[in-house]
Design a binder for these strands. Structure first.
Lengths: 135, 135
DNA sequence: CTAAGTGCAAAAGATTTGCAAATGG
DNA sequence: CCATTTGCAAATCTTTTGCACTTAG
């Protein structure tokens, strides 16, 4: 019997595996494609940018990773874990996780938990509008 | 005496004025540069894409408009008003305003106010991290 | 005159795709 | 064999910039 259906792929992919291992082993918040390619290069794993990109699309499609948009024009990816938000320092760019769902939390609480002094936030909720729900 | 210092610019700009008027007159949530150019074209106002873009930069710098990132790769702009969040339909792409600050609100309340059934949300808080605050 | 505004073209930055070669099952 | 994976190059798409020309003050 198969242990994991999702991993039952037609052929092994060293690029995909390497990407996935790096992301799982160092669960930073927001790997850009370049970050991952550099990480692989440092391990002497040759992989083209497009291969890394395709690995990420593959992993995202199957729910292993999810994209994070920090608003600077590049898409980042992180291992999919329990739901959480992000807080980024407007000076140094560092990103930290805000555990839990923001929709149910207050700013003061988040500040005390992350140590960040919040200045702004950018959010887009997604859902189904009344018109679409009726159609 | 000057009525408005911010408007005391060196020279009038019909592109900038037209952009600003359209955005104020139809305060939709998220005008892309293309949206605005199309709107101006429809009014027989010839304006290059770059001119519209520069008008938006100008207006954003001075706080008349602000950018909105819906996560689809294009930057949108809206007239700057009181703080609010956005909710976008994952089917038709329509965007509606969620008045107030999300950080202090609950999902159920937002759903009843907007009529959207929320499915996901994407958020990045911005602030100053402990390291930067100490430096 | 002088500086700001504009159009045109092209650069820049990131994402995405086409295609042929390599390769595992 | 055959379908998947990969590298390479190039197409796309959006944002941004350079530059010369126009124009208002």
């Amino acid at each position: 019997m198969r242990i994991c259906y999702l991993l039952d792929v037609a052929r092994p992919s060293h690029v995909r595996n390497a990407v996935r291992m790096r992301m799982a082993g160092d669960p930073r918040h927001g790997w850009s494609v370049d970050d991952l390619k550099a990480e692989l290069d440092a391990s002497d794993i040759r992989a083209d940018y497009s291969s890394v990109f395709r690995a990420l699309v593959w992993l995202e499609t199957r729910g292993f990773v999810q994209s994070v948009d920090l608003g600077d024009g590049k898409t980042r990816f992180e291992s999919r874990r329990e739901h959480h938000e992000h807080v980024q320092c407007e000076r140094c760019g560092s990103v930290t996780e805000v555990p839990g769902c923001l929709v149910e939390r207050s700013a003061a609480e988040i500040e005390s938990e992350t140590g960040y002094r919040l200045t702004t936030h950018r959010l887009v909720l997604t859902g189904v509008c009344p018109a679409c729900a009726a159609a």
